[in-house]
Design a protein around this nucleic acid. Structure first.
Lengths: 340, 340
DNA sequence: TCTTGGTGCTAAATGGATTTAGCAAGCCCC
DNA sequence: GGGGCTTGCTAAATCCATTTAGCACCAAGA
């Protein structure tokens, strides 16, 4: 049964011309001297037959496949990862490209295999995404392969896309300041001590730097800093519970991410403290849960989709080989009020 | 610079044989009469040169590309979607395939374009995933194209993968029963009235059917059913708040999904009711938030990854053309206790 | 009349594999 | 010594498009 696909030869035959002529016309080559009549006949034939070029055959000659590779350490674990993918998918679609997605879980062997599989398919470029946002290991790529690093950096491939964490960190502080907070502000998730360590990702360091720079430019200091390594709700819960058990002057919390903030909500509720009347909270990421919380959590968003988008734009458009910073939008909900 | 890729011709030359011989040997064709010596020389040459076949060139002849298409209405919105993708990616990798991911947002035009783009690239098969889980529209595919429907059904393509919702629904009731609940059980999210409507997805209908069948087999009835169309936390909050304002005999809640349960937690907490001491809760999906809640939410999980996995196994292995049901694992946390 | 130049188009090579048809050499057997 | 059979391998076609080189024709100029 299987109706055969229509090939360029079919189109050429129907137009009464050679495949060379058909190819040139369909590709809109400028210097061609083919008659208007030939153009019309080929275009009509292609339309009537529903001709679509075979990408593999074309790629064989041109080395272009309109396909890009997206290799990520994680794809399903965080909303961040899928946001990056979604953004990349959209931008790729707009540019008439498709994307091969691969997950490596950070395993070097799988990374190498992923690259090999992509190269076997002659992808036009590859995006390396990481959820850990640090100096990223990348297996050697053949000279000339385009690559952009998403949410991380790599010395060999300087084109990268990162969230503008510094600015974002500052924005969080500014939100609190705008509501009149000056005292009793605590930081949950980070501390000077932790910063000295290089374990944390580079982007987190920038976030903290932004926070501290805004604090000091307003002449403010934290009344407490709760350092935590893992940033899950339970850790936010514990840190906040500990904090409010120790002191009663806490008026505002800056949480390093929304999951910590979630835990903070729980600890506050158990202690009979209300958000935002008793304690204001501002946080980072704009996780799904930020919208689910009551009251809604005001947070500085990680611009997932915009980042994914920009990565493919840079890959395809050949943007400059530097780090590109994507603004982190403030998402205001209801977790900040003026201090009483 | 750009070092040229090693081709089969390079391997053949180094082995002192023809490309035909090299091809047959590397593909391990059984009927070949080539000498052991020839085998050794070709294999050695391939290894030494690091030869990898060009997939496009091979696909041109064989019509196999070791590539599968994954077209989904949504990719980033829910954890469910990315779980399906992750499962598919893993199974594909194990089978030596790669996957082209496309998002359509349910738009017919984009679906058609996605299919066309996949066909242009000669994919070996296509997985159609939907987050809405209903009869799925699928643009016409050339005869012979393999397809499996993930989380939905389609009359033309009977091979599909669905969660075993019926069984899952029953499991939720059994959990409550096992703890001794017999009275004051309410259902949040669904009602007889809503079921009559066909708007809801087929899988939800099965979930409800399972719940009702288990209830009646234990001679139990719901003391209340709160019908809701949208299943976000706020709706769960409102429904639960309404319910406990009206009556004080509620001892257990079956929520149609975790987000509703999240809302229920909030309403209960505001009313000074404790989970699970005052009210037990069981729910569905095993969303991220189920683990974040305090106490942890006991829920019947949607088996995302297993479903994605199975879909590619069926696609590649040619499983039988029927609906395949994947068990929904019970994830016990701490939201159920014996009634007081 | 012959060259030159432009116009409109095509033949053939190319990319990198797979696959079919078949060649050459050696051996056996009558 | 000639036919037939293995054995071990290769030439060439094929998949489908792109691209280079160049053919055939006509008109204009010398």
């Amino acid at each position: 049964m299987a109706e055969k696909r229509v090939t360029l030869a079919d189109v050429a035959k129907r137009a009464g011309l050679s495949t060379s002529a058909a190819s040139m016309i369909l590709n809109g080559r400028p210097d061609t001297r083919l008659s208007q009549d030939a153009h019309d006949r080929v275009n009509a034939a292609a339309r009537e037959l529903g001709y679509r070029p075979n990408v593999a055959a074309r790629g064989l000659r041109t080395d272009k496949t309109a396909t890009i590779g997206f290799v990520s350490d994680l794809v399903a674990t965080t909303r961040f990862a899928s946001g990056l993918i979604k953004g990349a998918l959209e931008a790729a679609e707009e540019a008439g490209h498709v994307v091969l997605v691969m997950e490596t879980e950070g395993d070097t062997r799988r990374e190498e295999e992923a690259i090999a599989a992509l190269l076997d398919r002659q992808v036009d470029g590859v995006i390396f995404a990481t959820m850990r946002a640090r100096e990223l290991f990348i297996p050697e790529l053949p000279t000339g392969t385009h690559a952009v690093i998403l949410n991380g950096t790599n010395a060999l491939y300087p084109t990268s896309v990162l969230p503008a964490e510094d600015e974002g960190g500052r924005a969080a502080v500014e939100l609190l300041v705008a509501y009149g907070h000056r005292e009793g502000i605590a930081l949950i998730g980070q501390s000077d001590e932790a910063e000295r360590d290089t374990f944390r990702s580079a982007t987190v360091a920038a976030r903290v730097a932004g926070i501290r720079s805004a604090m000091s430019s307003h002449d403010l200091t934290f009344v407490a800093e709760e350092s935590i390594w893992l940033w899950e709700p339970e850790h936010g819960y514990e840190a906040t519970a500990r904090l409010i058990a120790e002191r009663d002057d806490i008026r505002a919390l800056i949480c390093m991410n929304d999951r910590l903030a979630f835990g903070a909500y729980q600890a506050l509720a158990e202690a009979g403290l209300r958000v935002p009347d008793d304690v204001s909270i501002v946080s980072f990421d704009n996780d799904e849960i930020a919208a689910y919380l009551r009251p809604g959590l005001t947070t500085v968003a990680l611009p997932h989709e915009a980042m994914g988008r920009r990565a493919v734009e840079l890959l395809l458009g050949g943007g400059s080989a530097v780090a590109h910073y994507i603004p982190m939008p403030v998402v205001e909900r209801a977790s900040i009020a003026a201090p009483r």
